[in-house]
Design a protein around this nucleic acid. Structure first.
Lengths: 208, 208
DNA sequence: CATATCTTTGACCAGTTGGTTAAACTATTT
DNA sequence: AAATAGTTTAACCAACTGGTCAAAGATATG
C-alpha cells in the first residue's frame, strides 16, 4: 500500500512536472497529465486536490532545484577567476539537462509574481554581493557588482532560455547549437574575466 | 465607412496585440480581446476569421518591429566601440518601451518553432558577422564572433525578459530596477568593450 | 426612396476543461 | 471472513471556449 501509494503519487508528480515545465500552467491539461501518468483523471484530484495545488507542488520542487547549485558556487574557496569558470561549467551543464526550466520559471513568475517569494526566501543576495566584492578588491566599484552578477546570469541563462531562436539563427550561419554551447562553457567565463581585468587596468591607470 | 472600417479593425488589432503580448496565445481569450476593443465577440471573427489568424497577424507585426531597429545598427558608419554603445542605448530603450515583447516572442517560438522563419527571412546573420569581423581585425578569432553576438544580445535582452525576477532580486538588495536599467545602458557596453580589449591585448602578447 | 452591400449584434452551439461523485476494487485490521 | 479504510474508476456536471448565424442597423448606390 505505502509502496504503491508513493508510486502512484510520484507517477502523477513526475508527469505533472514534465508537462507543466514544457507548456506552463495555462496550456497544461489535467487529462494530459493523467494520460502520461497512465491513470484516471479523477486520481489527480484524489492525490492533489486541484490543478493549482498540483502546480504549486511542482513549482516548489523546481524552484528549489534551480537555486540549489547556484547559490553555493560563490561560497567555494578558490581564486575568483576559477569561481567564474566553475560557475559557467556547472550552470550551463545544469541548464543543458533542464533546458525548459528557465523559460518555465520566468514565464510563470511573469504571470503571477507572488511565486517569486519562493526563490527570494531561499537566497541571500547581499551575502553573494559581499563575497564577490571581497574577491575583487578596490579596483571594482561596489556599485557595479550587481551589474556583474546580472551579466553573468544573462550570459549563462539566455542562450538556453532562448534556445529555439538562438539555435535557428546559428543554423542559418552553419553552426551547430550543441557544439556552440560546448564552446560557450569555455568562452563565456573568459569573456567575463577579460572584462573585469580590463576594468581593473583602467581603474589603476586613472589612479596615477 | 472606410474610415470606421479602419478604426474598428485597428481597435481589434491593437487590443489583440496588447493581450497576446501579455498572456501568450494559449492564455488569451477572444472575449477579453473583444472587451478591451469595446466590441462584440462575433466582430472578431468577422474581421479576422479565427483566433489563429488574428494571432498570426499580430505576431507578424511584432516580429517585424523587434528586428527593425536591430539589424540596421551594425551597418552604421562609426568606430566599433561606438557601435556597441549605440546598440545598447537603442536596444535597451526599445525594450523598456516593449518589456513584454522578448518573453512573448521566445515563448511563442518555443511553442511552435515554425514561427522562427518569420525572423530568419528578414535577417542576414552572416552579413552582420562579417561586419563585426571586419571591424575587429585579426586579434579576434572569427570563431568567437558568434559568441560575441550572442553575448551582446544576452546582456541586453535577458534583464528585460526576466524583469519580474531581476526586479525582485534587486529589490531585496535595496536597488531600484528602473535606475539599474538606466545605469545598464552605460555599464553593459563598457563591459563588452573591456572584454574585447583585453582579449586583443592577450592575443598580441601571445604573438610576441 | 428603395435596394443592395457592408457592419454589428445577441443568441446560440458543440467541444473542452477542471472538478465531483457514487460505486467498484483492493488491502488492512479485527 | 467480515468489517473497515484506502485506492481507482467510469460517468457525469457546470462553466467556459472558439466559433456560427440569422437578423437588425448602418451606409452607399441607383
Amino acid at each position: 500500500m505505502t509502496k504503491d501509494d508513493k508510486l502512484t503519487e510520484e507517477k502523477i508528480f513526475d508527469a505533472a512536472t514534465e508537462i507543466f515545465e514544457e507548456k506552463g500552467l495555462a496550456a497544461t491539461r489535467m487529462q494530459d497529465i493523467a494520460d502520461r501518468a497512465g491513470i484516471n483523471k479523477a486520481l489527480l484530484h484524489y492525490y492533489f486536490r486541484s490543478k493549482d495545488k498540483l502546480f504549486n507542488a511542482v513549482f516548489d520542487k523546481l524552484a528549489e532545484k534551480i537555486f540549489a547549485k547556484f547559490a553555493s558556487i560563490f561560497e567555494e574557496d578558490m581564486p575568483f577567476e576559477d569561481k567564474i569558470r566553475f560557475f559557467f561549467t556547472e550552470h550551463i551543464k545544469f541548464l543543458q539537462k533542464n533546458p525548459k526550466l528557465p523559460m518555465f520559471i520566468i514565464g510563470e513568475v511573469n504571470r503571477s509574481p507572488e511565486l517569486l517569494s519562493k526563490f527570494l526566501d531561499r537566497i541571500n543576495i547581499n551575502r553573494i554581493k559581499e563575497k564577490i566584492s571581497g574577491d575583487l578588491g578596490d579596483d571594482i566599484s561596489p556599485d557595479v557588482i550587481p551589474h556583474l552578477m546580472v551579466s553573468i546570469i544573462s550570459l549563462s541563462v539566455f542562450p538556453v532560455a532562448a534556445k529555439p531562436i538562438i539555435s535557428g539563427i546559428l543554423d542559418s550561419a552553419g553552426i551547430d547549437y550543441d557544439s556552440f554551447m560546448e564552446e560557450r562553457i569555455k568562452v563565456a567565463p573568459e569573456f567575463v574575466i577579460n572584462a573585469i581585468k580590463q576594468q581593473q587596468v583602467e581603474s589603476q591607470n586613472k589612479r596615477k
